[in-house]
Design a protein around this nucleic acid. Sequence first.
DNA 1: CTTGCTGCAAAAGTTTTGCACACGT
DNA 2: ACGTGTGCAAAACTTTTGCAGCAAG
Lengths: 162, 162
Amino acid sequence: MTPAVPDPAITLTPPLCSIFRRFLKRQGLKFTPERAEILEAVLRKPGIFEAEELLAEMRQAGLRASKATVYRTLKHLLDAGIISEVLIDSERARYQLTFGQTPKGRLVCVETDQIIEFENPALTALRDRICKQYGFEPLSFQFTIYGTSPQGRAAVEKASKD
Amino acid sequence: MTPAVPDPAITLTPPLCSIFRRFLKRQGLKFTPERAEILEAVLRKPGIFEAEELLAEMRQAGLRASKATVYRTLKHLLDAGIISEVLIDSERARYQLTFGQTPKGRLVCVETDQIIEFENPALTALRDRICKQYGFEPLSFQFTIYGTSPQGRAAVEKASKD
DNA sequence: CTTGCTGCAAAAGTTTTGCACACGT
DNA sequence: ACGTGTGCAAAACTTTTGCAGCAAG
């Protein structure tokens, strides 16, 4: 049977919408329909996304927020700590919903462009150890390994048989 | 007295100029005066640098390589494994001489923009452990912690006394 | 002579900005 | 009315590309 006790992880973390509202109020900014739409669009994205991609999907969904508003709102969401930049290469900006998530490391296959995300306690432990050593107060981190996946190596091998 | 035996680390690692020459030849490309100039300019940079910055310094030194050639050559140096991209944010591309260097992690102070680089054996150990777990063959990695340094926190505190 | 290289200027792509008008309090 | 937000188009920036002439094997 379903327990009547709500999941504490849900009750203790107010929905992101409230988080964003509160952040905006604190900054003297307004929670407008456009900003709500953009946050919803972000919440619908499962993983890593780009600004233009988000905009395109919103357009397809019939949402009317302009490009400028999307870019401006992504900055606010970043400031609010709801999303984070994902630095894979310097081609363009990428983002990801990270509020309340366990920080993740990434493996990027340079052959297939596949991105694997992983959680590993040793990662945050190492971060904390290094921060302590330098008197740093950590806010976020990026750990990305570039290399070849088994599939990537297989693809290369196959291609070299030409 | 000075031993007659040369340092193996030096004899075994040919100068970067030869490395680059060899790389170019292997690719059917030429080692031109422009490419040599650009490599020299890179070798003169102690740390992290940007393409336009490199170009500006070359111009000041009276070197005539064009913007297009600088950008094109940076790509070759990247392919040759002589320099690496440094991903700090998505504002622009940054590079760093990394050939033969121990891989480094970075601490970025979000208040002062100071960048501290550190070496830590646990970092590569963790990388190897994770790669093994996923069957990845590692080529490079980025480990960057964002937070506040003691100086950054002091600066914030001082600024809030207004 | 064929292949690659350079410089220039133009193009492309992403992100930001100026401005006029609109909205909520 | 005031301060903030929005859309649009233009601007700003970084990076790439097309092309004509040049250099080297």
